[in-house]
């Protein structure tokens, strides 16, 4: 009955939004970035531990809708152990997936559950929020880094 809605809210997404993985502050993180969607108030903080150019650990915290939470959660499970370059490539693929109905052929594994988002243009920002925070964290953009908490400032 709810064809598009079932595409958008796949069971995997509902599951991740109810019990998000890696949903905590990461002790010993050496990169942090904060994502905020001013339209709906969703806030997500992404924590990274970079070993050279490998994401050796990743987590997130925050509040948001089912899509933004699940996207952050799936992102963390996908990126653990990936290099910065791989993560950046996945972001590009993910963005293409959620904004067009033409994903770029390559298998992107679990991220594919977000294919239904492109039919809901108002929700693309929710899906991408955590990824924006991730990219800021990877680039160590100082303006995006939270200052209150203990993770050390990025070395640029």
């Amino acid at each position: 009955m709810f064809e598009d809605l079932n595409d958008l809210y796949q069971q995997v997404i509902l599951d991740h939004s109810r019990s998000p993985r890696n949903f905590k502050k990461l002790d010993g993180a050496n990169r942090v970035a904060h994502g905020h969607n001013p339209l709906c108030g969703d806030r997500i903080t992404v924590y990274l531990h970079l070993d050279g150019d490998v994401i050796s650990d990743i987590s997130f915290e925050g509040s948001g809708c089912a899509i933004s939470k699940a996207s952050a959660s799936v992102m963390t499970t996908t990126l653990k152990g990936k290099t910065i370059a791989e993560a950046q490539k996945m972001f590009a693929q993910f963005r293409q997936l959620v904004t067009t109905d033409k994903p770029d052929g390559e298998d992107i594994g679990k991220l594919a559950v977000f294919a239904g988002v492109h039919k809901f243009p108002a929700r693309v920002k929710c899906a991408i929020l955590a990824w924006h925070a991730l990219v800021s964290a990877l680039e160590g953009r100082p303006c995006m880094v939270t200052t209150e908490e203990n993770p050390t400032a990025p070395k640029s």
Binding site: F2, L5, L8, D42, C65, I67, R123, C126
Partner: peptide
């Protein structure tokens, strides 16, 4: 259920609601 998901879902069932901070961020 988060307000955003309520509004998206309601829309697909024909009901136009508003979700968000309604231009009242400090109040929120």
């Amino acid at each position: 259920v988060h307000a955003h998901d309520v509004v998206t879902f309601a829309d697909r069932l024909g009901v136009a609601l508003r979700g968000g901070h309604h231009c009242n961020q400090p109040l929120m």
